[in-house]
Nucleic acid binder design. Structure first.
Lengths: 237, 237
DNA sequence: AAACAGTGCTGGTCTAGTCCAGATAGGTAA
DNA sequence: TTACCTATCTGGACTAGACCAGCACTGTTT
């Protein structure tokens, strides 16, 4: 079949797509270098790059800075109704989670955080920034903002573990009502740096505002997911 | 302040960002042509284009094919818990909705649709494809798939109106349980064509599987939203 | 064994153009 | 008025290179 009538980027995309569909390129495996591909397809690097960017937008492939392009692993199913934390959720889907703390400190709250936590101006909040991996791949950057009055001394704990469990074990606090807000947008500068992707990469921002079992507003999270790492499920009864 | 140390695309992005933030470029207004901008910033069109693509990824601006770049209007708040249909939701937020039917017919169900609607192989389904606008701007492409046994003669009605209301008025069917699945991905070829954007544009795919008041699986929708047109809210109790 | 210095390879960024097709607006003829 | 041209402007697609910074591997030195 001739594909010369189609434009080049589409054609390149289709060829790679076919390889992906038939499993010739396994998840996690590396694609040939951009220069190699441009030679293979008889075109420029810019054109190849455009095709790769389209596959990236579809979530089929992803890149690691200056390391190359890789085939995306399957998306994680993130069900908002099952109140499960990252570690449990990832493990339940037969994959390996890990977390690293980037920073944790008491600091003045930004305007946005004051609004979310319904705090007066110039309040202090505890900010915890963490990066999380699935099967070694960086997929999520989270900023937690805790109302400090509920969490004395929390910064002394090991924050690599689940914060949800920390709440339960040491503060007897459990999540009650939760409000989610999901926005498809580019990753923030901080998120892009933490996930080691180029700034402006597409992402999914999920903001959570959490109440405890006594209906008190205790904390909020700002999650930045790689756009190709999850699909979100919601069951409404 | 000198910005020459920053890379060019970032610098261009920041300048445009500033104009947007201060409302010098109103929502819906047109940006100068790419060639004009490259002249203005003293660089190539490719570089300007990259900066524009980044702002597009953030949802700040959007393009209409061969017409130009425009400032994005505010996102529509899409609350999954309020069971409201498109027209009502858009109107409630002080904006003007409209719908046009692209196609409506009985056809063999695809594998994916058979699975969603739990139909046997080679079933027939009613497919209704529609494009929807907010304030004249194309933002949503929907494919509805109805189990034909519940909707005799529905293709004879005016399908530009709300299908939810049609269900209620003529079939006494009301939505009960709903399952949503949200995936950030590129728009499908059909969706891109209907929304008149270039293929491969980022989008948000929301699949709904709907049950009626008697817990019967009656239909499903496949919605493709422009990624910058909505933010999704969910309240979990 | 551990630390270091090269070195080639990778994507990231950018220049300076070309050609094409659809959108638009102005003018002309029916 | 209506219909049809047509010139111009727009983004879309593409070529053929360049230089840079970070990564990974290799071979040497300590």
């Amino acid at each position: 079949m001739r594909i010369e009538t189609t434009k080049a980027v589409t054609a390149i995309g289709q060829v790679l797509q076919e390889q992906l569909d038939h499993g010739l390129l396994a998840p996690g495996s590396k694609l040939p270098a951009e220069r190699k591909l441009s030679e293979l397809f008889g075109t420029t690097r810019i054109t190849v790059r455009e095709a790769l960017l389209q596959l990236e937008a579809q979530g089929q492939i992803y890149r690691e800075e200056r390391r190359g392009w890789f085939v995306s692993p399957p998306r994680l199913a993130y069900n908002l109704m099952q109140r499960s934390h990252f570690h449990a959720m990832v493990s339940a889907q037969g994959r390996v989670p890990s977390t690293e703390v980037i920073s944790a400190r008491l600091q003045p709250a930004s305007v946005a955080v004051c609004a979310w936590l319904q705090l007066p101006a110039l309040s202090s909040v505890i900010q915890i920034c963490r990066a999380r991996r699935i099967d070694e791949r960086l997929v999520l950057y989270v900023e937690h903002y805790l109302n400090p009055q509920f969490f004395p001394g929390i910064l002394d704990f090991d924050l690599n573990q689940s914060i949800t469990e920390l709440y339960a074990r040491h503060y007897d606090l459990h999540y009650g009502r939760v409000r989610f807000e999901i926005v498809p947008t580019a990753l923030s500068v901080d998120a892009a740096a933490a996930l080691r992707v180029s700034v402006g990469s597409p992402g999914l921002r999920i903001a959570r505002v959490n109440y405890d079992q006594h209906e008190r507003l205790i904390d909020c999270d700002l999650e930045f997911w790689r756009h190709d790492a999850i699909h979100v499920g919601v069951d409404v009864v």
